[in-house]
Simulated assay, not measured.
Amino acid sequence: MTRRLVITADDLGREPGTTEVIAALLAEGHVTATTLICVSPIAEQAANQVGKLGVVPRLHVTLTSERGIPRWRPLNAATSLVDPDGTLTDDPFTLGARGELHDVLQEADAQLRWMRDRGLVPEAADSHAGTLYGLHGRSWLAGTLEWCARHDLAFRLPRDPVPYVGGPLPPPLAAAHERAVALADALGVPIPRTIATNRRTAQELAGTRNSETTTSAASLLSPKAPASCSCTRPAKTRSQDRTASYEPGRRACYATRLGTTPSKAKTSRSSQAGGPDASGPAASGRLRRRLFRQGSSRAPGGVISASRTIS
Rank of each mutant, 00 (worst) to 15 (best):
I195F: 06
P74H: 02
R288A: 15
G302V: 01
T194N: 05
Y254D: 11
A47D: 07
S296P: 12
V55H: 08
P276Q: 12
L88K: 08
R199K: 09
R290Y: 02
Q106D: 15
T232G: 15
R288C: 11
A255D: 07
D126R: 14
I37T: 03
V121L: 14
P158D: 13
S297R: 14
A110Y: 14
T260S: 15
A149T: 02
S305W: 12
L81K: 00
L183T: 11
V21R: 13
S284C: 15
A108T: 04
R288E: 07
L120Y: 01
D185S: 05
H128S: 04
A125R: 04
A47Y: 03
G13Q: 04
A46V: 10
A182W: 03
V303G: 00
L5V: 08
Q294M: 15
R118K: 08
P122T: 00
L258K: 05
A97L: 01
Q49N: 13
R250I: 15
R159Q: 00
P300M: 09
Q203F: 14
A24V: 01
H30E: 15
C38F: 01
T62D: 03
G86Y: 01
R14S: 07
R238F: 04
C253Y: 12
I22M: 12
N210F: 13
G99K: 03
P190T: 08
T144K: 02
R251G: 10
E212A: 12
T94H: 10
